[in-house]
Simulated scan of single mutants.
Amino acid sequence: MSKSALTAFYGGTFDPIHYGHLWSVISLARLVNLQQVIFLPNHVPPHQMQPVAGAQQRLTMVRLAIAELPNSLFTIDDRELRRSTISRTLDTFQDLRHEYGHDAPLGFIIGQDSLLTLPQWYCGLALPDFCHLLVCARPGYGDELDDERNNFWFSSRLTRDPQKLHEQPAGLIYCAETPEIFISSSDIRARYREGRACNGLIPPSVQDYINKQGLYSNHAI
């Protein structure tokens, strides 16, 4: 990996991880020429419902999922799962910036849905001080924030040139034209509760693990 290559972190609860996560990030990696994507599972996210699966179960599912992918682009950082407190993304990227140094290009991969809620995160609008934001498309979501001031914050950082993400350490927002994939973790959990199949929505190894663990229902299929 070249010295100036962008390292991107993909945060989420992954409860469970599914093909929507994987296909989006594979497409993003091609668009941005990423040489490394590091999955960053959340422990206790402050702005979402608490995960159904335990921390180690979600970590195992991410490991199983990326093991099925055809290259070594993807790895895992479990630092947030090792915390006993809530997962604050700003805290994590402050730590990462300290570890990688001031000049290393770092990115945080989020969906359009998360971008729109960023002003409600703990110091969410300060994240570009530490990393770039790489935004994946989500069905039914636009790219405008909730008021004029926040939209100015967004537009002043927006870039259409992915190469710029490799040329400076932080500060930019790139909205990638990734496929809009109609798969969600909440829908998969609902399918398990209702006894409906999830074939084609999650990797087979993750599906087998869910079944063996009895996750999301008493009759995983």
Results as ranks from 00 to 15, higher is better:
182 F>C: 15
98 H>L: 11
106 L>Y: 09
126 A>H: 03
149 R>D: 15
134 L>V: 09
96 L>G: 00
129 D>E: 09
162 P>V: 01
139 P>L: 04
123 C>P: 15
92 T>G: 10
181 I>C: 08
165 L>N: 04
126 A>M: 15
173 I>H: 02
169 P>W: 06
117 T>P: 10
166 H>K: 11
129 D>H: 11
78 D>R: 06
175 C>G: 10
169 P>I: 11
163 Q>L: 15
106 L>R: 03
121 W>E: 07
110 I>D: 01
112 Q>T: 00
140 G>Y: 14
94 Q>L: 07
96 L>T: 00
101 G>I: 11
178 T>M: 04
113 D>K: 10
131 C>Q: 07
143 D>M: 13
80 E>Y: 09
122 Y>Q: 12
125 L>C: 13
81 L>F: 08
74 F>V: 14
174 Y>R: 04
162 P>A: 08
73 L>S: 02
182 F>Q: 15
124 G>P: 01
161 D>V: 12
150 N>S: 06
161 D>L: 13
91 D>L: 10
158 L>H: 01
173 I>W: 04
168 Q>D: 12
75 T>Q: 03
89 T>V: 12
145 L>G: 00
152 F>L: 15
112 Q>G: 11
177 E>V: 08
128 P>A: 00
173 I>G: 01
128 P>R: 03
93 F>D: 01
152 F>I: 15
159 T>C: 01
104 A>F: 12
178 T>E: 03
117 T>Y: 04
178 T>H: 03
